[in-house]
Amino acid sequence: MTSKEPKLFANESSESDSLFKASLPFRYNLDKVFAIVTWAATLSGLIVLGILLIDILIDGFSRLDWSFITSYPSRRAASAGILSPLVGSIWILVVTALIAFPLGVGAGIYLEEYSNDNWFTRLVEINIANLAAVPSIIYGLLGLQVFVRWFQPITNGRSILSGALTLALLILPIIIIGTREALRTVPSSLRQAGFALGATRWQVIREHVFPLALPGILTGTILALSRAIGETAPLIVIGALTFITFLPSISPQGLQSPFTVLPIQIYDWVSRPQVEFHNNAASGIIVLMLLLLVMNATAIFLRNKFQKSR
């Protein structure tokens, strides 16, 4: 029996050994190549992210000043600003949060704390998983039909309220899932201790479970809201305008006011041919990303605090 590879062991005698050609150097080389490829894949995404951020900073930095923040959109690129889109985004953010937070947290508490594993729970669970795959623009069509048309007497059509309701439905599944995960981290011994004292389920949840889960729930909610703040398509579909030169009054009537948001303004500027408007878009992107950064930093801060206290 001749074998090209040197013998590994002195008394290598069995005939069966010659049936195996381990060719280890070749396999090790493949291993090395494979490892390098996985690293390259991971880094490629991050490199693109880096290029994107740098490109936008370069394009947008020159236009970024206080007057850019405090001016209304304009036909002249040099004097155009993002006051109304920024205020619109903040309106949408707040109203969406006010609608989606109680609904999502309530639904999450129901699914995690009240329901048994019955057909209703399973229906809701399958449904939530399904909704995650529905394109956001479809939610826009839903909002257009239901909130803009049918609920027109309440929402006044293409208004902040319609937009916020649409986005609330969009992020509801995310908040529900986040709430359930946060509730699951609360040890069940805590609930049993509460029941043992004679508390009702709601008392146990309100007094013991919810406070402990709250930071986790808030983290999930903020991440969901940062998704909402970056959404463009559904709001275009429900008919947010691109040219708004007034601010909604801070009152219930403000909810019925027409609006625009940052991503829509950015889209409007990107789709114009002039470079000046493109740079405005880049500046708008910087503001949008800063807004997202603040929200995400808050979420991470809450998460860390949450983890430390446990």
């Binding site: 049936l19 050609k21 381990a22």
Partner: peptide, 8 residues
């Protein structure tokens, strides 16, 4: 057997 280059 495959990964170890079995020839049989």
């Amino acid at each position: 057997a495959k990964i170890n280059g079995y020839q049989g």
